[in-house]
Simulated scan of single mutants.
Amino acid sequence: MCDRGELREVSAAVLAVTAHLSVREVLQTILTSARRLLKARYAALGVPDRDGGFAEFLADGVSDEEWSAIGPLPRQHGVLGEMLCSPEAVRMADIRQHPHFGWWPKAHPVLTDFLGMPIADGDEILGEIFLANKTEPGGFTSEDEDLLRLLAAHAAIALVNARLYERSRELSIVEERNRIARELHDAVTQKLFSLRLTADAAATLAARDPASAAEQLDTVRRLAADAADELRSIVVGLRPVDLAGDGLDVALRKQVELLDRVHAADVRFTGAPIPRLTAAREEAAYRIAQEALHNALRHGNAATVSVDLRQEGGKVVLRVDDDGRGFDTAAPVLAARRLGLASMRERSAAVGAALKLTSAPGAGTSVRLEVPTGG
């Protein structure tokens, strides 16, 4: 039966796994607890890398000066290498009698009685923990082996958690990159495209109609400010600027009016009062409308573009129709358009909306989005 001191050590090892500590700190706590509980002079824990060495190798019971004198970290050979290949514990009165024992550096302490345990997750060996030189007579016992197996299991949990966290972090980075790519394509690229056209118009008018050129330059300033605001929103993951205080209908009307001023095409908005949607659904509808408008004006070379927003039953229906050149929806498309179409589908699916795109060469394009108002 454990005494209070032993229970404290077990508790420290178990709690370390659930605490907000680095994996190295968790493993060091487990290692120190193991050495104290099993009354060993030395303890070590290794996590292998893929190059024949150890990504982590911790020791307890050795001073910093002794550790420095020992030299480089061990490699995956000898007994340490064997323990990474077998799920069985190693318990011996003298480790030097092990068939795979090789040597140790000159400054390495002499090890005799030995207890080693693989750190495993199912059939996968993640590392190893071992104790040496029992400070009490009789060497390590089967009870010691059972306790070390328990502590090795907690070390395995820490390593698996660290692996899962790293994978989660990598996925989060990928998702954030994809979000930024979508936002840049959906919003900022379109504003910059409009800004370039307006700047070209201002340059053309500068000599023969300074007053009109000045008006165009005012629009350039506004578009540049809008693009800067959009970039700030993308970086911090905020909602689109136009939706911050306005509803979807007002934000879309403003967007259409701006595009109508800066493009040669006739861009019109019609709509009826609609209920407020969730923030995610409003943003999805707004971005999809932006993408449809961008495609019509930049890729479709449309003369007229109409945006209609209204409520039909329990849904808000958005339509963007143009009379542009259209395209074959079954044929490969330009990379920029492909990214935009994929973004529209992803956004609609993410908020439970239904997206339908109809187009044909020479027959324009129609985008219809149905967004549920409830749920």
Rank of each mutant, 00 (worst) to 15 (best):
E170C: 10
T135I: 13
F193K: 09
S142R: 14
L131P: 05
L197Y: 06
D121E: 13
L131W: 09
D186R: 08
S172C: 08
G127R: 04
E136K: 14
F140E: 03
R169H: 12
E175D: 13
G122W: 08
E183D: 00
L151W: 04
G127D: 00
N161A: 14
L217N: 06
S168H: 13
D146P: 08
Q190H: 15
E170M: 13
A202K: 02
L195A: 09
L205N: 02
T141Q: 10
E215C: 06
E136M: 14
T135P: 01
G116K: 05
E183V: 02
T135E: 14
I157A: 05
G139Y: 03
A214S: 12
L148S: 08
V174I: 15
V188E: 00
L217M: 10
A162H: 11
A211T: 01
K134W: 11
L131T: 02
A187Y: 00
E170I: 10
A187L: 12
L171N: 12
E143Q: 15
V188L: 05
D123H: 01
A207T: 13
N161S: 13
E124K: 03
D186P: 07
I125E: 03
I157R: 00
D121S: 13
I125W: 01
L192M: 14
A213P: 07
A156Q: 09
P210C: 01
V174S: 14
L148T: 00
D146C: 12
G127F: 02
F193E: 09
L197I: 02
F140I: 10
L126I: 10
S172Q: 15
A158Y: 04
G122S: 02
E124D: 14
M117R: 01
Y165F: 14
D218E: 04
L147K: 09
S172D: 14
T141P: 07
R208P: 07
D186S: 12
P210Q: 07
A153L: 01
L148H: 02
L148F: 05
L126K: 00
I180D: 03
I119D: 06
